[in-house]
Amino acid sequence: MTSSTLHIINKAASNSQLYRDCLDSLHDDDGVIFIESAVYTACGAEPEMFSNFNITAYALKTDILARGIQDKISEKITVVDDGEFVELCCLYKKSVSWF
């Protein structure tokens, strides 16, 4: 188990304040997972806002497929299924939801 935090975001990036708060809260080696409407953030240039941070970014497969954006996901993103999401929650010391 790491001493790091898994940040869970479920809103689209138009919720700019939510993203700013989350970015302000990122510590080295933390993880961020995009779920629900936040999977759009995993597309194309959007993950750039996280590129200054030494973190790992994930996105939830089911939510990506449901929205039909599987071809647009940035290669910097690790796509995980529901089981792996649960494993991540156990792997990190704690999770913080940004809902």
């Binding site: 935090t5 302000d24 809260s25 510590h27 010391k93 940004w98």
Partner: peptide, 17 residues
């Protein structure tokens, strides 16, 4: 300070947001 937020949160065991 805003720059201290990340390390502040890091030190807790459980966070409810």
């Amino acid at each position: 300070a805003r720059e201290k937020l990340a390390s502040f949160i890091h030190d807790f065991d459980v966070v409810i947001n």
